[in-house]
Structures are given as C-alpha cells and as structure tokens.
C-alpha cells in the first residue's frame, strides 16, 4: 500500500511543482495519472523512488516512510519499487540479458555484478519473465538492436526482476507507435494482475488511460483535481485537467473557446 500525504516539491524559489498532494494506492490496482506537460506527473513518480528529493510531505510504502531515507536503506527501499521509463533507459551496449539482470543489482554483491555471476534463481526468473513477454530469443542480443516495443518489454522485465512491491511507469508508451503502445499497456495490466502488483502509470493518452486502468488521477498545476473510475472521467473532467494549458500563449482566449475544440 502506497500512501502519499501533503507532498510538496519546489525547485529553488519558483512556484512549487507539487502543491501538497495526497494519494493512496491499495492492493493490485492499476492507477493512471493524467495531466498536461508540466502538471507534475513525472515529478510525482520520481519523488516516490526519490530520484527527485521531495521538499516536504510523507511517502509511505507498506508502512515504511520513504521520504527520510538515505544511503543503503534508501537503496534497499528502491529495489522494492520498479520503474519503467519513457525513453526505456536501457544500457544500449549491453545484452538484453544483462539489462534484465541489472534489475537485480540491488540484491547482488559488486563482484557478482562485475563478473555477471547472478544466482541461478535470478537467471531462471529472467528467462521466465522474458518468455512471458516474448523476448527470450533476444537474450544475447545487444539492447540497441531491438525495436522500440521490444526495448520497452526489456524495460518492464528489468523492473519486474526487482520483485517490486509497486511498479511505477513514467509515460511508458509515449515513445512507441500506437499499436505497440496498446500492446505494452495490455501487458502491464496483465502482469499487474498476475503478480498482484499495484501500478502507477503516468500517461498522456487519455483513451488508453480509460481503457486499461481502473482508476484515473488528474493533476493540474501540481494539484490533484480528479480521482475516480474511468466511467466518471467525462468531458468536464477532461476540460478541467487540460483546458487552456496546452497552449500557454492563448491564455487570453476565453476558456469557452478552448472547450469547443
């Protein structure tokens, strides 16, 4: 269970990016976070695994407070949080297998990591997951030889190798073509229920959010302004979240005109 309360992130003296956010994710629900660019979606996810330092507020995962961790305890907490990235963030010059096994780096010692001597159960798990998503035949290929959809599958498997308690996905389909991006969304939803994992997905594509997730959270200017099921996510909610933001130059134009588009 992930509980976020009063989360604030401020860069320097600018207006905060996140303004006191409260969010609670339970069980194995798939939650999508929607909002315009700059609404704070990416910052929110990165505050959870502390790739970005929150300014204030509390983040608790299964009862453990994450926002105050440092050093080794922070790394131990991070290995229970899987993350899938927009740009895949694979290590291009290493093989697919090495990329996948990199998900275990929080568990193995330095020498094992250096010699690539991962425990047999890690390797078994890697093969199993790669077969599940259909990339096992590429195990010894270099990661940069794969297509976009295959690369994102590697990214997903790497995150699952961590045996995470929660999966974070930062715009996992934004760099993919429409067909592949549907496949990845389906895959993530299926894996979430198979492994009974809660999943938090930042997503730009509202139609996909409606189709593949059970709960939608809408952010605007660092505040949560919608939280509910896809059925309740109607045109009014969409207008509230995206209205007048996408083109900041047109702020002078009445918002009615924006809604008409």
């Amino acid at each position: 269970m992930l509980e976020i309360s009063q989360l604030v992130k401020r860069y320097g003296h600018d207006d905060p990016v996140l303004k006191g956010l409260d969010l609670c994710v339970e069980g194995n629900s798939v939650v999508s976070i929607v909002g315009a660019s700059g609404a704070g979606k990416s910052t929110l996810l990165r505050c959870i695994n502390r790739l970005i330092e929150p300014t204030s507020g509390s983040i608790r995962l299964n009862g453990q407070e994450l926002s105050s961790l440092k050093g080794a305890p922070l790394r131990q907490a991070r290995r229970r949080i899987g993350m899938v990235f927009q740009g895949f963030n694979l290590i291009d010059r290493l093989t697919v297998m090495e990329n996948v096994l990199a998900g275990r780096l929080g568990y193995v010692g330095f020498f094992q990591a250096w010699r690539r001597r991962f425990p047999p159960e890690d390797i078994e798990r890697a093969f199993h997951l790669m077969e599940r998503v259909g990339i096992a035949q590429y195990a010894n290929k270099r990661a940069d030889e794969l297509s976009g959809g295959e690369r994102q599958r590697v990214g997903v498997v790497r995150a699952l190798m961590q045996e995470p308690d929660i999966l974070l996905a930062d715009e996992p389909t934004a760099s993919l073509d429409p067909v592949t991006s549907e496949q990845i969304m389906k895959l993530m939803r299926a894996l979430a229920s198979e492994l009974s994992l809660p999943v938090l997905i930042n997503i730009h594509n509202v139609a996909q959010a409606r189709a593949y997730t059970e709960r939608i959270v809408g952010l605007r200017h660092g505040r949560m302004i919608f939280d509910g099921t896809p059925e309740r996510f109607d045109a009014a909610a969409l207008e509230e979240i995206y209205g007048g933001i996408e083109a900041p130059d047109e702020t002078a134009v009445p918002s009615v005109a924006e809604g008409g588009r």
Partner: peptide, 28 residues
C-alpha cells in the same frame, strides 16, 4: 547518456554498480 544512470539508481544499485553498468559500457 544520463538515462541508464537514472535507471540503475532506480533499481537500488550502489554507486560502484551504477558505474559498472551504466557508465563503463558507454565509455568503452
């Protein structure tokens, strides 16, 4: 490329392991 470094930090790898997996392959 900073992105692999970010990914390795996110899986909970320590500094030496981040260098081994995300920095070394890129500068070889």
């Amino acid at each position: 490329d900073r992105r692999p470094v970010e990914a390795m930090e996110a899986v909970g790898a320590s500094r030496p392991k981040v260098i081994l997996y995300a920095v070394v392959p890129q500068v070889v």
